[in-house]
Design a binder for these strands. Structure first.
Length: 154
DNA sequence: GCCAACGTTGGC
DNA sequence: GCCAACGTTGGC
């Protein structure tokens, strides 16, 4: 079992929105970065857990946990000329972009803020806090995942 | 709103 | 296949 982290801007899609989805799950469309795509297409497995991180807006923090409920499949927005994520080079026979389905597991009562993540020595090597790291879907080690969960409960 | 860091594109 | 130009991300 592997662990991950999704970034989201809360003004676009806050964690609260996950709880309101029909059937309590949502597809994570719109990712247009090859590294992130590869992770969703090839590496994420059903049952994997991931942090949900709020970026760009204060407080920037890990705000909860989601579970992967469906493995990588083509992101339909790439085929839709009306959609802002439309990709003219993608076709249904040859899709370029993939997404997964997730469902909410837990909203932290005490979100773990970015500055806390940076200060914690045990989280050295965490991709999120690495300089210049912008990947919107990224891996988290088991050790780091568990430690951040502990921080959220403290 | 700024801008550093990074990713992608396209001319050569 | 290089790399300049451009676009985007995301913390500050």
């Amino acid at each position: 079992m592997n662990y991950w982290l999704f970034k989201s801007e809360p003004n676009v899609y806050p964690i609260d929105a996950l709880a309101k989805e029909t059937g309590k799950k949502t597809f994570w469309d719109g990712v247009r970065n090859y590294q992130a795509r590869n992770i969703m297409r090839d590496e994420m497995k059903k049952g994997d857990l991931a942090f949900f991180y709020h970026s760009r807006v204060q407080p920037m923090a890990v705000v909860g946990v989601v579970e992967i409920v469906k493995e990588g499949y083509p992101d339909h927005t790439q085929f839709d000329a009306e959609d802002s994520h439309f990709d003219p080079k993608a076709s249904k026979e040859n899709p370029r972009w993939f997404m997964v389905d997730m469902k909410l597991k837990k909203i932290f009562k005490r979100p773990v803020t970015l500055s806390e993540l940076k200060e914690e020595k045990k989280l050295e090597g965490l991709m999120l806090t690495a300089k210049g790291s912008r990947l919107s879907v990224q891996p988290v080690s088991k050790k780091h995942f568990e430690h951040i969960c502990k921080m959220a409960e403290a």
